[in-house]
Amino acid sequence: MTRIDAKFAELRAANKKAFVAYVMAGDPNYATSLEIVKGLPAAGVDIIELGLPFTDPMADGSTIQLAGQRALAAGMTLNQTLSIAAELRKTDDTTPIVLMGYYNPIYSRGVERFLVQAKDAGIDALIIVDLPPEEDDELCIPAQAAGLNFIRLATPTTDAKRLPKVLQNTSGFVYYVSVTGTTGAAAAQAVDVAPEVARIKASTDLPVIVGFGVRTPQTAQDIAGVADGTVVGSAIVEKIGAGEPVADILAFVKTLADGAHRA
């Protein structure tokens, strides 16, 4: 059982939905990013999505793109990203960490070497948005053999023919993208999301977590109410980008987590 499996079992036992927070590693710099990450569990975050900075983040809107640029400009690397996870693990051995990003930095490092390093750092799962199921042999299968979950995205355009392919080697949870387009796009609507979540859950026993377009405590509550939990990224990253104090950022995160947990 991975940390993600254990977390969902714990949430089900408590009749709670999951709140997942995304932050870009190294944004705006290593020290501040580490302070934010270390503060997320106490702010109510059940699962941390840690963005791996990359020069060409094609699935991300301007907010996340700018966060990646800030991190890279501050000298953030793959090693330092894994270091943030390792530092959290010194005081927290239960909160799952999902590394989210693109394949190029991993390919450049070498898959086998990367997986050893990621596992050693305490990473629990990967979301690699530019590796389709047809490329599962590249990373998905080796990652699962190494004990890491491999989480796949499903979208409003993932039709009945495509869905089984998306689900075939997915583990941990399914990330449903609530709106078409990039991160930070239009607001998610529970009435639109609910039938899509039901459709996915009819084909898998995995939890379905909904992200993209969730920016407020009320939306977090509404979306978590029709899924197994929700993800917020851009709304948090905007506050980091604005240079708000870490305490204020974490206080905002807590309002989102409280919203999701009320569902």
Results as ranks from 00 to 15, higher is better:
Asp222Asn: 07
Asp136Ser: 15
Phe150Arg: 04
Ser203Glu: 15
Val210Ser: 00
Asn149Gln: 12
Asp205Phe: 07
Ile223Phe: 06
Ile223Cys: 02
Leu153Tyr: 00
Gly229Thr: 04
Thr219Leu: 11
Ala187Glu: 15
Thr170Glu: 04
Gly211Val: 13
Asp222Cys: 03
Val174Asn: 03
Lys165Trp: 08
Asn149Ser: 13
Gly213Arg: 09
Ala190Lys: 10
Lys201Met: 09
Pro142Gly: 07
Thr155His: 14
Glu135Leu: 12
Leu206Gln: 07
Leu163Pro: 12
Thr219Gln: 14
Leu139Gln: 03
Ala185Met: 13
Val179Thr: 15
Pro195Asp: 10
Glu134His: 02
Ala188Leu: 09
Ile141Leu: 12
Glu138Asn: 11
Gln221Thr: 04
Cys140Thr: 04
Lys165Pro: 01
Val179Trp: 03
Thr219Arg: 15
Val179Met: 14
Thr219Asp: 10
Asp159Val: 08
Glu135Arg: 09
Ala194Thr: 00
Gly184Lys: 14
Glu135Tyr: 00
Asp136Leu: 08
Ser171Asn: 09
Arg215Trp: 06
Val197Leu: 05
Val231Gln: 04
Pro195Lys: 10
Ala202Tyr: 12
Gly172Ser: 08
Leu148Met: 11
Ala188Val: 11
Leu148Ser: 06
Phe212Leu: 15
Cys140Ser: 11
Pro217Asp: 05
Leu139His: 02
Gly213Gln: 09
Asp159Phe: 01
Ile151Gln: 02
Val226Lys: 02
Val231Thr: 05
Ala186Ser: 15
Val197Phe: 06
Ala227Phe: 03
Leu167Asp: 06
Arg162Asp: 11
Pro195Met: 10
Val179Arg: 06
Ala188Ser: 12
Val208Glu: 04
Val226Phe: 03
Leu167Trp: 09
Pro132Lys: 06
Gly181Ser: 14
Gly211Asp: 08
Thr182Arg: 15
Glu134Thr: 14
Gly147His: 09
Gly184Asn: 14
Arg199Leu: 01
Val208Lys: 04
Glu138Pro: 00
Ser171His: 06
Thr170His: 05
Leu167Met: 09
Arg199Met: 04
Asp137Gln: 13
Ala146Val: 02
Thr170Gln: 05
Gly172Arg: 03
Pro142Tyr: 07
Pro133Asp: 13
Val177Lys: 03
Asn149Leu: 02
Gly147Gln: 06
Gly184Arg: 13
Thr219Ser: 12
Lys161Gly: 12
Thr204Asp: 07
Tyr175Arg: 03
Asn169Lys: 13
Pro142Ile: 03
Gln221Pro: 05
Val226Thr: 03
Phe173His: 01
Pro132Val: 08
Gln144Thr: 06
Ala146Leu: 07
Cys140Gly: 07
Thr155Arg: 07
Asn169Ser: 11
Asn149Arg: 06
Asn169Val: 01
Asp192Lys: 14
Gln168Gly: 00
Pro133His: 12
Ala185Arg: 13
Asp222His: 01
Asp228Arg: 05
Gln221Arg: 15
Arg162Gly: 10
Pro142Trp: 06
Val208His: 00
